[in-house]
Design a protein around this nucleic acid. Structure first.
Lengths: 226, 226
DNA sequence: CGTGTGGTTGAAACTGGTCAAATTCGGTGG
DNA sequence: CCACCGAATTTGACCAGTTTCAACCACACG
């Protein structure tokens, strides 16, 4: 349903390109809540999430700070077109990242024509996050939006088992609400209604099992029903 | 308030780069409603709007067709990262475009390192449209959103005169409503309320005069008042 | 001067926001 | 291991804003 995973960057590169870029990468760790990238600072590094999850916050034109997206294991953070990060990134839980120097990536870009475009095309988060966000929040009831949200996250991180697709949600309800553009109460109610309808289960606060993916997709479609 | 205009591509290029790219450009015209770009076809051309306005439609992941943005005189259409257009473009009124061969642009990109990135950074509509759209529709009442919409369009196309900033709106109310994610009636009512509050005037259906820009900006800010 | 399209306005039903209270969860210390 | 605390979440009641459906208006066109 949503665009192919950002995780496919590696496979889009040749062996030589990969070696060039991945050379000199450093491992870094962040605790929950720690800032990984500060908005409006020089985009000097590019991160690859090895473990954990990250929240992207963007300052909108009129000064409002809004949640622009969530990134997970395998995703890239900081691969942006501009010279300055147009967003902040913050660890949602204990997070392990691989840090690449941006200059190395750019140098490789000069060496291999089209590499930069290919990287941007496969892994540009600035853009894909934006699109996914619009896909999720445009149209329908709170329930629809939450449905689309869960399906999107599920596609990116979910693991299927006997009972359904298990999706971990390391963010709080309030953060989901901010992402959806609703109050946290409405979001909570939407969870409850999906639960009552038997489309999802919530064994813990921070995880959801999509029991009936078909029904959820139906709810996620325009206008809550059909 | 919104990001610098897309029209600045030219100034981001050197004389030589410009000559190379603009060489072989063709002039084309479209009537209102005509399709300029068909979604999911090979991104073979890049257009520069000389006259008129264009509507961008995007097929969302679940098949819903939604209005993703509007482009005006001076804007570029079709400068995208991917190989296929991820959107359709349709003329809103009688439109004159300059059509560039994409291969020419790519060749120039190979010749001048970093050119492609610079072009994408200054003129990538796929992305900027997306961001502007989010900026406009996230949070607040219909009135706020319409306010942000008018300010955005005004920044891009408005002409100031004695009475205020004159903004032409070549799209119908329904299309504005779709963009904002509301019913056309709510959008119409929002127009009326802004009119009654004395922040705008609507001399014709297809143009708005922003009389009190400060007040409009205030309304556009979070939550319709303060 | 009718006709059609696009725009505006009105009234009732409904959704989601707000405020407040109740509940559950996760961790801490006894 | 259990009781307790604070934070996160859920639920309830009420209200404001939005949608819906329907009627009406205004302008452009023949």
């Amino acid at each position: 349903m949503f665009e192919p995973s950002i995780r496919q960057l590696s496979s889009a590169l040749s062996e030589e390109e990969r070696r060039l870029i991945f050379h000199g990468a450093k491992f870094v760790r962040y605790e929950p809540g720690e800032v990984i990238i500060e908005a409006d600072t020089t985009a000097g590094a590019l991160f690859h999430i090895r473990e954990g999850a990250v929240k992207i916050e963007r300052v909108h034109a009129d000064g409002r700070m809004l949640i622009a997206g969530f990134l997970f294991e395998g995703d890239f953070v900081g691969l942006c077109i501009a010279d300055q990060y147009p967003f902040s990134a913050r660890a949602l839980d204990a997070t392990a990242l691989c840090r690449f120097d941006r200059r190395t990536v750019q140098e490789a870009g000069r060496r291999f024509p089209g590499l930069e475009r290919r990287m941007l095309a496969t892994a540009s988060n600035e853009f894909r996050q934006c699109q996914d966000h619009l896909d999720v929040i445009m149209g329908g009831s709170v329930e629809s939006k939450l449905g689309r949200f869960l399906l999107m996250i599920g596609e990116r991180t979910g693991v299927s088992d006997a009972c359904g697709r298990v999706v971990s949600l390391p963010m709080r309800r309030e953060e989901i609400a901010d992402y959806l553009g609703h109050s946290l109460e409405s979001t909570s109610r939407a969870f409850s209604r999906l639960r009552e309808a038997g489309t999802i289960k919530t064994p813990h606060r921070s995880s959801v099992v999509i029991v009936d993916e078909f029904k959820l997709a139906q709810i996620a479609g325009r206008h809550g029903a059909t």
